[in-house]
Amino acid sequence: MNSYYAATLAVYAAVDIIACIALNLQFGVSGIVNFSFIVFQSIGAYTAAVLSMPPDTANGAYQVYIGGFQLPFPIPWIGGAIAGGLLAIPVGLVVLRKLRSDYQAISLLVLSVIANSVIMNARTFLNGAAGIAQVPGPFSDQVDPLSQTYQLLYVGLTIPCVLLVWLVASRIVNSPFGRSLRAMREHEVAATAIGKNPVQLKMTIFIVGGVIAGLSGAILVGYIAVWAPSEWLYPETIILFAAVIVGGRGNNVGAMLGALLVPVGFFEVTRLIPATIGGWVPPPNLIPAMEWVAIGLLIIGFLWFRPEGVRPEPRRVFGGAPVPEDLVSAGSS
């Protein structure tokens, strides 16, 4: 295994971990089934791309896109994260306010399919189905992007992001706010009855998730340098759902584990499948199709046999309020 491959794997793993933590905050902790998660990742990627790229008249204008600001490193990533958060506001306002949870899920699924078809057909907006190519990564003007140093640099830039996201997510999960989210997930009416505003809670976590998803897209696009509608079809969201379900809904460690087991794991396992099996050459589309079948079976299997996942959400038990001394002694006498 050479260092390029290791770096690629590390960056993919980091992006998937960040994405799974965001999805876990929305789906695992708060019960929002965000079937358009990939759209938030994608807007982050597109934003980061157009912020870091030269205007589209450069390079002989072979691709068409809006923007092209050539901004230096942290801005595209920050911009991607902000874009994800901004997109969450209108989407959340339409979907999360009045609708029942299963309607929310199908509306978001529909949004995911439609957004993809719009971007694909609107060629002058973000270069349509062909997608944007040659996105410059951070510092690629100072360090040769093909060098080994650059690979290490990229991993070095990515890891702090993972840690930051991890920190924010654990703070949210363990805070009183996180408790309110879980209360809402378990019983929305009861949570409302004790004064929690479910719309506000949902909107907040939807935006937080959008920001993190946008960041994950920005990190990914800087590394792979291309972003096209075929990268973010709605089944991509299902992989992340599979990861969170396998890892353990509501548990950040579980989400991280799921990210390593499902998207990264599948990526690795496919590499090990030989091109010919005993002289039989499988048709080129068979293996990817079977991977998708496996993802579907994984979801169904886990929901049937182990719905809590590999690392279940910890049971948070309220130990009870401290009982005054005199009451304890009065009880024992």
């Binding site: 089934v33 899920a105 199908i106 299902i238 589309n285 199709a289 169904i300 049937w304």
Partner: peptide, 29 residues
């Protein structure tokens, strides 16, 4: 079977989406 098990509406939606993915990708090859 999942409904009898008491899987909630959200779980059922995810299961049907997984079923859709499986059907499509068995058909594809």
């Amino acid at each position: 079977p999942f409904q009898r098990k008491g899987t909630n509406l959200i779980g059922m939606v995810i299961i049907s989406l997984a079923a859709s993915l499986i059907l499509a990708n068995i058909l594809l090859p």
